[in-house]
């Protein structure tokens, strides 16, 4: 009864609030919060100088550049093509449309290790597509980028698609009546409506790419300073029993991830407000 009395904003006749919330909080604490706080507490065993040394060596810095750079570029490509795919799925009729729609979620459903070895088989120098290319894809940052495009693909499509479905066609008709060309209608009427969703999808794809491991390590070749991503570096440190060093890098990545999560939440509440205003 304690939770019900202290937390509930309105009286409710429905039962089970204490049990449901109590269990949920206990479960989250045990599975997520306590282990996660272990990571932050572990870094307190380091002095500030040790923390900086562990997280800013040239090899670690190179891995940040690769991870953040490739993730950003992958999310950008996904933003452009995700918008096109969402547009095509919502507005046009064409054969295989349902199949395409269902397959958009494949990167969510396909285990990352499977994606990793498949992408390597395609883009390696003797791979089905890689052998026809004049430049190397696997074992370069380009390979990392391809893997990150794959795993980020559904995010933009799935955030933009429902918003696009809800766009009031009368707004577009009004724009056309007022003399707007089709492109002008898209730029000044449709695009501003889907923009918050597009940004959210972009941020989600970026956040997912930052932490990605399984699909990247096979195609990346993992050469230090060249194609070694930060999550792999954490594992390498762990295998050398450098727990403090691994945790320090992990905390840097966690802070980046939480910052993004906050940004995504802000974007979504902004999107909701805008949609509310337009409806």
């Amino acid at each position: 009864m304690f939770l019900r009395r202290t937390l509930l904003k309105r009286h409710s006749v429905l039962p089970g609030f204490d049990l449901a919330l109590g269990f949920a909080l206990l479960y989250i604490s045990l599975i997520v919060l306590i282990p996660l706080s272990a990571a932050f507490l572990k870094t307190f065993t380091l002095t500030w100088q040790q923390f900086l040394d562990a997280t800013t060596t040239p090899r670690v810095m190179a891995s940040y550049r690769l991870t953040f750079g490739a993730s950003l570029l992958a999310a950008l490509l996904n933003a452009v093509f995700g918008l096109i795919v969402a547009w095509v799925l919502v507005r046009y009729q064409f054969p295989s449309k349902r199949l395409i729609d269902a397959l958009v979620d494949l990167p969510f459903a396909l285990p990352t290790a499977v994606a990793g070895i498949a992408l390597t088989a395609i883009w390696a120098q003797n791979g089905s597509l890689g052998q026809h290319l004049p430049f190397k894809v696997s074992y370069t940052p380009l390979g990392v980028w391809i893997a990150l495009v794959f795993i980020g693909l559904p995010f933009v499509v799935r955030t933009v698609q429902p918003v696009l479905e809800d766009v009031n066609r009368e707004l577009e008709e009004a724009a056309a009546t007022l003399g707007a060309k089709r492109w002008q209608t898209f730029r000044h009427v449709v695009f501003p409506i889907v923009m918050p969703a597009l940004l959210t999808g972009f941020a989600l794809a970026f956040a997912r790419a930052l932490g990605e491991y399984g699909s990247v390590i096979f195609i990346a070749g993992n050469m230090p300073m060249v194609s070694e991503i930060t999550p792999l570096l954490i594992i390498t440190k762990l295998e050398q029993y450098d727990y403090a060093g691994a945790t320090a890098i992990a905390v840097v990545m966690l802070v980046a991830a939480f910052g993004l999560l906050l940004l995504i939440n802000l974007l979504q509440s902004w999107a909701r407000k805008r949609q509310g205003g337009l409806a």
Binding site: V32, L36, A39, A207, R208, L210, G211, E212, Y213, G214, P231, L232, I234, I235, A250, M253, L254, A257, F258, L260, L261
Partner: peptide, 9 residues
């Protein structure tokens, strides 16, 4: 939260 935490972490 688990969606934004790297699996490695």
């Amino acid at each position: 939260l688990p969606f934004s935490v790297s699996p490695v972490i």
